[in-house]
Amino acid sequence: MKKLILGIAIVASAFVFGQKNDVNAKLQETNKAAMDAYTAKNYTVAAPKFIEVYNLLKTNGQDDKIYMYYAGLSYALANNNDEAIKIYTELINSGFTGIQTTYTAKEKKSGQVVPLDKTTWDLMKNKNNDYSDFKTEQTPSVEPDLYETLTTLLLNAKKPNEALVIIEKGLAKYPNNVKLKDAQGTAYYESGNTEKFIGALKEQLAKNPNDATNWYNLGVMQSKNPASLEDAITSFKKAIEIKPDFDNAYQNLVYTVIGEDSKIVDQINATRKDKPDEATKLIDARRERFAKALPYAEGWYKAAPKNIDAVTALKEIYVVTKNMDKVKEMKAKETELKAQGK
């Protein structure tokens, strides 16, 4: 979220309402209360005060939605998602961009640059010789921020389908917005749209193949489908290549390579007596999988030496691959961590 830039629009308003002292005084008082509350990080107080400023201006013919933007931002910072979502939605639907034009001139005598409202600036530019360097500037658009923040608010509120609507609308205007693209993948995932989530991850990785987190997320999704387990292994390996201490990637890689071991053990036990040859084949295949998983389990342990799950997994792999010295070492480490409450 972008930091507020306050006080500019209200200066212009003071010129507009210069003949209405009661209105102008109320505006200045309310604006100061809003800014003071925001500066003090009292966002719960700041938000309705900004709305009050907006309503005062609107009543007097000035529909300056920048104050609704300030209110929405304050509600978001106050974790009042419902009010923030309401305001951000209204701002987006209204076409609000937050672009403001500022007008300034330099006082020749003092050399000071002073802010002016447009009407005064136009008049002085043509008729007042006491000022020079008449300039106008435009503030940047906050529209991308509106889409990004509203998307985050909706995802935080567990409304991924509504977030997708905003994301698609935002990407139609800002197709290269990285934050919206990232949020799109999250929204697909949270809405249960697995295929689109995988598609979004692949699209992001095509643009940035060095994103370890996206390789990891892709591996997680691929590992859920028996037909794409080899793809999952490749994705987890990519994540580790990019981020060698990525312990979660090592963990998932180990379990993906080993597979559903409890089911295999049940099969071995069920066939051991009546079909010993079949049981032997299952045992050999199991040992082969554990041997294949061993370097990844060692990598996991190296990345997370105090993770008891990593220690236990490595111990069990050493048992299956018959490395008894290492089994003793891991048992000792397991006992140590348990004593420490890890």
Score class of each variant (00 low, 15 high):
residue 185 G to W: 04
residue 59 T to Y: 02
residue 194 T to I: 13
residue 41 K to E: 15
residue 200 A to Q: 05
residue 173 K to S: 12
residue 285 A to P: 02
residue 48 P to D: 13
residue 231 D to F: 08
residue 324 M to I: 11
residue 164 L to G: 05
residue 49 K to G: 05
residue 57 L to H: 08
residue 233 I to H: 06
residue 262 S to I: 10
residue 166 I to D: 00
residue 315 K to E: 10
residue 29 E to G: 01
residue 256 T to N: 08
residue 242 I to S: 11
residue 97 T to C: 06
residue 94 S to K: 11
residue 110 S to K: 11
residue 55 N to I: 02
residue 277 D to L: 07
residue 12 A to N: 13
residue 204 Q to C: 08
residue 164 L to T: 02
residue 39 T to I: 09
residue 336 E to M: 05
residue 298 E to R: 09
residue 302 K to T: 15
residue 171 L to V: 00
residue 162 E to P: 00
residue 58 K to A: 07
residue 31 N to L: 07
residue 110 S to R: 09
residue 6 L to M: 15
residue 93 N to S: 12
residue 184 Q to G: 00
residue 177 N to H: 12
residue 258 I to F: 03
residue 119 T to D: 12
residue 31 N to W: 09
residue 163 A to F: 00
residue 53 V to L: 00
residue 104 T to K: 06
residue 271 T to K: 15
residue 222 Q to Y: 12
residue 194 T to M: 00
residue 294 L to R: 10
residue 135 K to H: 03
residue 132 S to A: 11
residue 215 W to P: 00
residue 329 E to F: 07
residue 9 A to S: 13
residue 340 Q to D: 03
residue 9 A to M: 02
residue 258 I to T: 12
residue 111 G to T: 10
residue 192 G to P: 04
residue 193 N to A: 05
residue 29 E to M: 04
residue 263 K to N: 14
residue 172 A to Y: 03
residue 280 T to W: 04
residue 322 K to Q: 14
residue 41 K to A: 15
